[in-house]
Every structure is written in structure tokens, then in C-alpha cells.
């Protein structure tokens, strides 16, 4: 504050004829400019029975593809969904997470809701075939995790899909 008192008369001299605005002192500290970095890791996949992971088993097939703007299970995937429903019925302590996906066009959040519709369609089918509500969770990744990175119909068709992930009774598995 002392400095201000000192410079004020000087300025008054220099700026003769000018209405002098006093200089106000303010610290530049009132913004919290520090940001702490947080890192989050990813889980490893272990502990599922061979029946679910062996490439010879139908249950190792976990992806269902959808048509453009469509959210129902195509006939060609009904058998696969039925096989997974059968496994869930026979193995009640197992849980499944269904992740729905969309192609890259449009709003991220709206696509999240559209991917949800695909995951819910798979979930409804599984429940109709005997899986229990508490065994199955439907979620969406929207357009965030494309399987194919291209920007054409071939890539988009690869991306309109739902993934089925399993977790064993011990809590290990794919999610």
C-alpha cells in the first residue's frame, strides 16, 4: 500500500489533464490453479471356465451385431443368445455384463442411450429365456469404444454391437 501512496502523486504529475484512476492492488492468488493428476488402471481377466473361453465352445462367441438404427436381435443371433441364457440358467451364481455400442455418428450421450437400447434388448431376451434379473446388467459404451476405427459403413457395421462379459461366482472374470 505504501508504494501506491508514492506513485499516486507521480502519476498525477504525468497525467496532467487526465482524470487519474487509482491503481488498485489485487493479488493474483484467488484461483486454484493447481491440479492433481489421478491415474486409474484396468483389471486383468482370469478365472472363467473353459466352457466360456474355449474358442471351440459356442459360448466363447460374445458379440451380437445390429443393423443401422435397429435395436432388436437379428434372427441369426437368436441361437447364440439362447445358448448364453441356457448357461446363465444352469449357472445361477454367474453374472453377465452386456455392453452396448453404436457407430460414431452423432452426440456422445445420445449414442450412449442408443447403445443402452441394444444392451437392454439382449438382456430382455436372456431374461425371457430364464436368466435372472440379478444375473444380468445392461450398460452402454455409446460410440466410445469402436471395434473398427474407419469412417465408412463397413466400420460402422462392426461397431453397432453388444458384448457379453462374464464374472464367476468368485468375483473374477471379464468385468
Amino acid at each position: 500500500m505504501n508504494k501506491l501512496l508514492l506513485i499516486a502523486p507521480l502519476l498525477a504529475l504525468v497525467l496532467s489533464g487526465c482524470p487519474s484512476t487509482p491503481i488498485k492492488e489485487a493479488p493474483v492468488e484467488d484461483r486454484k490453479s493447481d491440479v492433481t493428476t489421478v491415474k486409474v488402471g484396468d483389471a486383468t481377466v482370469t478365472g472363467l471356465p473353459l466352457e466360456l473361453t474355449d474358442s471351440k465352445s459356442v459360448l466363447s462367441k460374445r458379440i451380437i451385431y445390429f443393423d443401422l438404427d435397429k435395436y432388436d436381435i437379428k434372427d441369426e443371433y437368436k441361437e447364440l443368445v439362447a445358448a448364453h441364457a441356457k448357461f446363465l440358467v444352469a449357472n445361477r451364481p454367474f453374472k453377465m455384463l452386456i455392453q452396448g455400442h453404436t457407430d460414431e455418428r452423432g452426440s456422445r450421450e445420445y449414442n450412449l442411450s442408443l447403445g443402452q437400447k441394444r444392451a437392454e434388448a439382449v438382456k430382455r431376451n436372456l431374461i425371457l429365456l430364464g436368466a435372472k434379473e440379478e444375473q444380468v446388467e445392461a450398460v452402454s459404451f455409446g460410440k466410445e469404444k469402436p471395434a473398427a476405427e474407419g469412417h465408412n459403413e463397413a466400420a460402422w457395421a462392426q461397431n453397432r454391437r453388444a458384448h457379453m462379459l462374464y464374472k464367476s461366482p468368485a468375483g473374477s472374470g471379464e468385468f
Partner: peptide, 10 residues
């Protein structure tokens, strides 16, 4: 004219 002025401590 002087329109404004200040001193920021940083």
C-alpha cells in the same frame, strides 16, 4: 483519459 489501472501481485 485513463480508463483503468491496477496492480496485480504475482
Amino acid at each position: 483519459a485513463v480508463l483503468s489501472g491496477a496492480a496485480y501481485v504475482a
